[in-house]
């Protein structure tokens, strides 16, 4: 399991991908793009939010989840 921390630079709706939400995330001074399914967690992630991405490989399949962390009122 790999935990990656980053900051959201942009939230976007991917073309031709219904039920998906995209994020451009600053990770270690690099901007990386991720697409996730829309769910209660992902719809509440905003630009500038700090996030944790958990990457796991289970039974040869890679799973990637994203979670928001730390308060906005920091």
């Amino acid at each position: 399991m790999e935990k990656i921390y980053g900051k959201i630079l942009e939230v976007f709706l991917p073309n031709n991908k219904m039920d998906s939400i995209g994020f451009k995330i600053l990770i270690d001074n690099e901007v990386k793009e991720f697409i996730f399914d829309i769910n209660e967690e992902t719809v509440n992630i905003l630009k500038d939010d700090k996030v944790m991405i958990i990457k796991q490989i289970i039974d040869n399949k890679e799973f990637i989840d994203i979670f928001k962390y730390e308060a906005e009122d920091e």
Partner: peptide, 21 residues
């Protein structure tokens, strides 16, 4: 089995620990 409960959102299984799409 996995020593954590960071279960991926898309994780499906029949036995509780093996991924099965």
């Amino acid at each position: 089995h996995h020593r954590n409960l960071e279960v991926p959102t898309k994780f499906k299984t029949n036995d509780g620990y093996t991924y099965d799409k």
